[in-house]
Amino acid sequence: MTSAKQRIKAGIDIGSVTTKCVVVQGRQTIASHIIRTAINPEQAAREVLEKALGQGCLSPSLVDKVVSTGYGRRRCLFANQIVTEVTAAAAGAYWLNHLQPALVIDVGGQDTKVILVGKDARVVDFLMNDKCAAGTGRFLEMMAVSLDTDIDGLSSLAKAAHHPASINSTCSVFAESEVVSLIAQGIIREDIAAGVFLSIAARIASMVKQFPESSEILFCGGGAKSSGLHLALEKTLNRQIKILPQPQFVVALGAVLASE
């Protein structure tokens, strides 16, 4: 048991936009790092592991096991084990929620998942958004660009809104042109930004509402870093939503935990 606790394992989550690595000893995160995935998932996985280890002043030879997850999981050829991001998100969220079952919303770059996590981090059921990008991190990024800001700037703008605009397009490409036409109509950026968050929140909420209401709602993935999206979700669902610590690393951590 003691020796098992000393073991160092790495979880690498190769997402569509960013690649995350968490180095874990026992169950404690001892180092983590995040980089853009760019075009080569395998390269990104190597680089992020190297950097995470460098940050923790650890030698690669100490790493006992590497678990990969995320859309590029099978491209990480040096991984000892592969798990899907759904199972990993469930395991990470369950651990960070003090081993309590919950409903997990994971907003990533190209996927949004809603996962019902039961006892022992078991995935009871899950839903993923359709193949298009509406309701994902990518959508937020595109909308931020249309409004000449970044994702954090989008949240600040939304906070100052008085009359959120309504954005109806469910397709991110059309939503962009909708935003452009709202700007042309003279609607202020603040109201458009708030409208963007509400439109994503509505899409995520329709997924959440397909699950039983009793469970606590947790929020992770890159999307959870956006305070604007968090507020819009709480408003739309009329529920409290807990953001997990270091939300972008939940899946990478969960990959390690799920592999045990």
């Binding site: 859309y71 899907t84 009871v124």
Partner: peptide, 28 residues
């Protein structure tokens, strides 16, 4: 599983189906 005849969602489909397999407890 909802999809069409084109191939662009293969990656997402695979993730979903693998996650489903993990959910029902199948070994890989």
């Amino acid at each position: 599983i909802k999809t069409d005849l084109e191939g662009e969602d293969r990656g997402q489909l695979r993730t979903r189906l693998e996650a489903f397999r993990e959910m029902i407890g199948g070994r890989s």
